[in-house]
């Protein structure tokens, strides 16, 4: 009887361990170029996307928050006082961030 209980306990322990261990995340330390994601985060469709930034060209003046915003740039990043929501994509699989988790961001 005792033996049977111990067998059940051992099985339960192993059963608990398996899913937990499945969450272990070895650090992926390959070089940046090793990741194959080529999704661009800049999807604002600016026509001067590939314009050179040499010197003091106009593209520099549009940095961060888009054309014509001028002094309104101080309104908390590029929009409201809140941080922009991350893209719909999941965080990169770099071994640092738990897969499937979503960063929470706030700008005050």
């Amino acid at each position: 009887m005792i033996l049977r209980r111990l067998m059940l306990l051992a099985a339960a322990g192993a059963g608990l361990s398996a899913p937990l261990l499945a969450h272990a995340m070895p650090l992926h330390l390959s070089s940046p170029s090793g990741t194959a994601q080529i999704l661009l985060v800049d999807d604002d469709g600016d026509e001067d996307e590939y314009q050179s930034e040499g010197g003091d060209d106009d593209s520099n003046r549009k940095a961060n928050c888009g054309e014509g915003e001028g002094e309104d740039d101080d309104e908390g990043g590029c929009a409201t006082g809140q941080g922009a929501a991350p893209q719909n994509a999941n965080p990169p699989a770099n071994g640092l961030i738990t897969p499937g988790s979503k960063p929470q961001v706030q700008i005050n």
């Binding site: 985060v41 922009a84 929501a85 991350p86 999941n90 961001v105």
Partner: peptide, 9 residues
């Protein structure tokens, strides 16, 4: 791609 999914304002 290194910051895809972890980019904000």
């Amino acid at each position: 791609g290194e910051v895809n999914g972890v980019t904000g304002a």
